[in-house]
Nucleic acid binder design. Structure first.
Lengths: 151, 151
DNA sequence: GGTCAAAGCTTGAGTTGCTGAAGGACCTGG
DNA sequence: CCAGGTCCTTCAGCAACTCAAGCTTTGACC
């Protein structure tokens, strides 16, 4: 592990494959933890996106899917008692999704139970954590396509 | 960008959030590229998993889903002319999925068209590429749960 | 050689995720 | 006040996913 070793620079294809594998494994860990609490990954993802109150339409944007789809997802979260719809003050068209205390607890539990992910973090030293985090932060705006977008 | 800067070590939560964001953005880039060629992300993922011939059951294992589900996915790939089912020599129960030349071409085209991902790679210098790749490789077995598994 | 459990694939029923089109309620600008 | 746009929901329709059941084929045991 000699710091700036003479390791050869990986090709784009190699990087892509490694990234895809890590991304897939992370996602599976997430989905498995959610499933243990009776949530699909979409529902869990939505729950994570409403840690602060969000209108339906904005939630659709965050989840990257159609607004009509969010109706069903929130229906199920609501029937499980993990979130509620509240009327927005000032615009009665808008419904705002608010996470419940129980929803917040489930969310925290799910995150805490992502065992493999935590193990993976433990397998890194401080230098690696710093490197990984800074790469993610640097690369995210490019990858997400908001190079200069608002907020 | 000072190499081993005095940057503070990120917490697990921060790392998790950054990783999740990068993973989600990568996946959206992938899904969008696949959609441009009329494939769902599941179909494209399956196509990538059959670059060499694979029995149905093994494919289910690679995709992490039920075998009965793979039937439908391969049905659609087959009807698009991107893969074929072939009888296995020696065991007539087994059907082996083989990618076609057209399938291989579409797959390569999809990978080449993941514009944001390539942009993200370009935003990294050699040192970062090496670091990211080595972290992925180191962390993958832990994250995927095969710490000493076969094959 | 015959029998039977088990493996591999498919089918069917049922839920969820997702989209697009259409509709109802509501806001805003003229 | 009316027109057009916004926000949400509903509906039809498809893909993905799971479980249970069914069929063919295998392999092992008697």
């Amino acid at each position: 592990m000699g710091s700036t070793a003479t390791t050869t620079v990986p090709t784009n294809a190699e990087l892509m494959e490694a990234l895809a594998a890590v991304g897939a494994a992370y996602f599976q860990d997430f989905a498995a933890a959610a499933a243990r609490h009776g949530l699909s990954s979409s529902q869990a993802k939505a729950l994570g996106a409403v840690q602060e109150p969000v209108p339906m339409r904005a939630l659709a944007g965050r989840l990257g899917c159609d607004a009509s789809n969010v109706t069903g997802i929130v229906d199920r979260l609501e029937s499980l008692g993990l979130a509620n719809r509240e009327a927005a003050a000032g615009d009665r068209r808008v419904k705002i999704v608010v996470i419940t205390a129980e929803g917040r607890e489930i969310l925290n539990r799910i995150r805490g139970e992502m065992a493999r992910t935590h193990q993976a973090f433990e397998a890194m030293d401080d230098e690696q954590r710093i490197a990984l985090h800074s790469i993610c932060v640097q690369v995210l705006p490019v990858l997400a396509g908001r190079t200069g977008g608002a907020q």
